[in-house]
Design a protein around this nucleic acid. Structure first.
Lengths: 243, 243
DNA sequence: CGCTCTAACTTGGTAAAACAACCTGTCGGG
DNA sequence: CCCGACAGGTTGTTTTACCAAGTTAGAGCG
């Protein structure tokens, strides 16, 4: 039996058209076949064709203009710049996926900035798990996760061992919370002596600091991810569409 | 005759349901009325209801689960964090919208980083328009726009006067190019003496540097926007959904 | 020749119907 | 008591049909 669950027809049509655009069969700027032509060629109904074209338009492959037709824009260059965002990777990937060591895992007084993002009173104690990540044998980043004490209870976060599971999965299964989006703040400052020593960086080069407030769908902040990286060796890259 | 062009029914349904979610009528976590219930209540057909619910799902208002129903997630908190991205504002807003002065507008040899982003050979001449932006009477940012010489010909960019039109509109109408998206690099460094003087900042605080490569739909880089801001006074903020 | 108007195309939106896949109870029989 | 079958609910996908709105090109008239 072939229970390989074929993709729906409209999705197949999407892929077929994407291939034709990528192969240059439908060059950018050209007019796409009309709905009726696609209906005849693929032997599907109009709503199916429209559903496929809607997906292509929402993903930026084509433009549509009532009364004229649909124009090819080309492969959306956005798709190639899809590397994970700075803070995001540390929520989903297990700690065992990257080299590094846990250098702190305890309840400490939250700095002002962290407390503000978490919605706690200043100097309230919060749980901190801090990790020095290495690449090619050299320390490159300090990644810290802050969260209210309630959220850390009953988890394995106090262990100095690397988590074999992603932090997101770990918290969602044990505490029933649901991560939805991240609000990110980026700033730069000079490193403290301790930080410069840990990262093996000169004391006179700045430090890029990323603060990612992890929120649920209602906007409640559940945790804060702090990523520190030396600005002379690492940069942040990101891509976004222009309205 | 009332030619007020009523919005389509599915869009009206979208707004109606958004209002009910915002008002607490449909609290987060609750089950939305089923398709059949909505058909009866609003007197529309099923495709119309499905189209409305699809929009709501794509915008993050609800989750749908086959066989169970649709669950309310709440007003997507993303919508509130919709301030323009760092480089983006300088492309659309006219220069007259912000205080400041043009401090450079000429063809100069492009620095390595700029030349690489533009796809030019190192030390090739490129057109530069640099502007010192002030807020509350104090200089706060240096915004520079780089582009190949061909793109600057026949434009008003060499004028030291503020452009009454957005840069994007100006170039698109005069040169027939079409901006599509931006690839952004963020880094930090210490300010040059001249930069620290212009911005009125201490020499020992770092500078946040944002390089935005403005591209068309095919991925061709048309221009580069460089934004320099003192890290002690300004931060970058951004929000994005978590898969 | 030039203008206008219409006919034929395009995409956008709505309605009605059917089948498939999935979940969750209930009602049996073991 | 436990467990499986089943019925009835849900969303997902596809089809047929029709009307509305915008664009274009050509026929036809002045």
């Amino acid at each position: 039996m072939s229970l390989e669950s074929v993709p729906p027809k409209y999705a197949q049509l999407v892929q077929a058209l994407q291939r034709r655009i990528e192969s240059g069969d439908y060059p950018p700027g050209s007019l796409l076949p009309s709905e009726n032509q696609l209906i005849n060629e693929f032997g599907v109904s109009r709503p199916t064709v429209v559903a496929a074209l809607r997906v292509l338009r929402e993903q930026g492959w084509i433009d549509s203009q009532q009364g004229k037709g649909r124009f090819v824009r080309g492969r959306p260059a956005m798709a190639s710049a899809e590397q994970p965002r700075p803070g995001q990777a540390y929520l989903t990937a297990p700690e065992t996926a990257s080299a590094g060591e846990v250098i702190e895992a305890a309840a400490v007084a939250a700095p002002n900035r962290i407390a503000a993002l978490l919605g706690l009173a200043p100097k309230t104690k919060a749980f901190l798990r801090r990790r020095l990540v290495s690449r090619d044998g050299e320390p490159t980043e300090v990644v810290s996760v802050w969260m209210p004490l309630e959220l850390s209870e009953g988890t394995d976060l106090t262990s100095a061992e690397p988590l074999p599971q992603g932090l997101r999965e770990h918290l969602q299964s044990r505490k029933g919370v649901r991560f939805d989006h991240i609000v990110e703040q980026i700033t730069a400052r000079m490193p403290a002596t301790e930080e410069a020593r840990q990262l093996g960086m000169p004391k006179n080069t700045p430090l890029l600091a990323v603060y990612g407030a992890v929120r649920d769908a209602s906007g409640q902040t559940l945790a804060v991810v702090e990523v520190l990286l030396p600005a002379d060796r690492h940069e942040l890259e990101d891509a976004y569409p222009l309205s």
